[in-house]
């Protein structure tokens, strides 16, 4: 079962090609060059787009535009090759790659996304002291988190990175890609103004 997995919700776009649990390749770049990575992954594995069996795609939360790029790519691939797809929470994928540490993703505007998912101020996270926090939000607010007794691994620790192999691992229910919705968590700006 050849699964193509990718996630563009955070600043680093992650992709992986996984064959029945065996990671054939994994790449990192930016959302707009995601298809270059996908192309390279398949070429390295000697595979053709028609060899793909299914897609696992990150649904955020994270950057609205970034998340949509990944989902739009999933919709295009699914339409072209009639592939089933599953959405995977970016928070869940981060946690799966970090021994179930608490994932903390930058939500901009001084907030982070945490499991729930919720958008919260980084100085008031509902975690036990001593909890390990991973993700770009944990790196961005390292000082605040450490001041509240939370543990943030060193910057270069790879647990901070979203890795698409975990999307392939976590993907459960495969269905039409068109029906996979992003986890925005926040309403669009205009909606907020009305509220």
């Amino acid at each position: 079962m050849l699964t193509l997995a990718f996630d563009t919700a955070t600043a680093v776009a992650a992709s992986a090609l996984v064959d029945d649990g065996e990671v054939l390749g994994e790449r990192f770049s930016r959302a707009v060059t995601l298809l270059e990575d996908i192309d390279a992954l398949l070429r390295q594995a000697g595979a053709h787009p028609s060899d793909l069996d299914r897609l696992a795609v990150g649904i955020g939360p994270g950057s609205f535009t970034g998340t949509r790029i990944g989902l739009a790519v999933a919709r295009g691939l699914a339409l072209a090759r009639d592939l089933p797809a599953a959405g995977v929470s970016t928070l869940a994928a981060l946690a799966a790659g970090a021994d179930r540490a608490a994932p903390v993703i930058d939500a901009r505007r001084g907030e982070v996304f945490v499991a729930g998912p919720f958008a919260m101020k980084p100085d008031a996270l509902p975690f036990e002291p001593g909890t390990t926090c991973v993700g770009d939000g944990a790196l961005l607010y390292r000082d605040l988190l450490e001041a509240s007794g939370l543990v943030v691994p060193p910057d270069e620790d790879e647990r901070h990175r979203v890795r698409a192999r975990f999307h392939a691992l976590l993907a459960r229910e495969f269905g039409p890609a068109d029906e996979i919705q992003p986890l925005y968590v926040r309403a669009p700006d205009a909606e907020q103004m009305k509220a």
């Binding site: 787009p49 535009t65 739009a72 339409l79 072209a80």
Partner: peptide, 20 residues
């Protein structure tokens, strides 16, 4: 609108790539 254009371009790139 950049965010709007990116939806169409990303889907179009994926479609084109899948079928070369």
């Amino acid at each position: 609108l950049v965010g709007a254009l990116l939806v169409g371009v990303s889907a179009a790139k994926a479609l084109a790539w899948s079928r070369k």
